[in-house]
């Protein structure tokens, strides 16, 4: 078993930890993700084919968040949104990210106890 000591600001000298990195998703993983997110096997296959045809989109899609955004665009807009210009894709993705961040923030607040909420309120000066 391989253990790496961390760097000074991480786990160095404190305890041994195995540091791993996540591999970019393969075509097969992308296909699975599209299938689960889009919920329509045929549309998922077409989405994957569209993504693989575009070199930059294919390279960009290898992180789960990006793949999720592509699936959302394909599901809620349509496939032409993916094959159209890059600016349209970016605009659509930013819209999804903003909505997601908003949901995450409100979920985070609801998960915190009263003490945390008080501490947060103090931090932001409310």
């Amino acid at each position: 078993m391989w253990s790496l000591p961390g760097r000074p600001s991480s786990f160095r000298g404190e305890f041994s930890a195995r540091i791993v990195v996540l591999r970019p998703m393969t075509d097969k993983q992308l296909a699975q993700l599209f299938c689960k997110e889009i919920g329509d096997e045929a549309k998922a296959k077409t989405t994957l084919a569209t993504v693989l045809q575009n070199e930059s989109l294919s390279s960009w899609s290898r992180r789960p968040l990006h793949a999720w955004l592509i699936a959302r665009v394909a599901r809620q807009e349509n496939l032409s949104a993916l094959s159209n210009n890059a600016a349209a894709i970016v605009r659509t993705c930013i819209r999804f990210i903003c909505a997601r961040e908003e949901n995450q923030a409100s979920a985070e607040v609801s998960r915190t106890g009263p003490e945390t909420k008080e501490a947060l309120a103090r931090t932001i000066g409310v």
């Binding site: 786990f11 305890f15 930890a17 996540l22 992180r63 789960p64 968040l65």
Partner: peptide
Amino acid sequence: TSVTVIEAEPGAG
């Protein structure tokens, strides 16, 4: 292993 650190860029999962 006992302690595993997953290191990856934002959005990597």
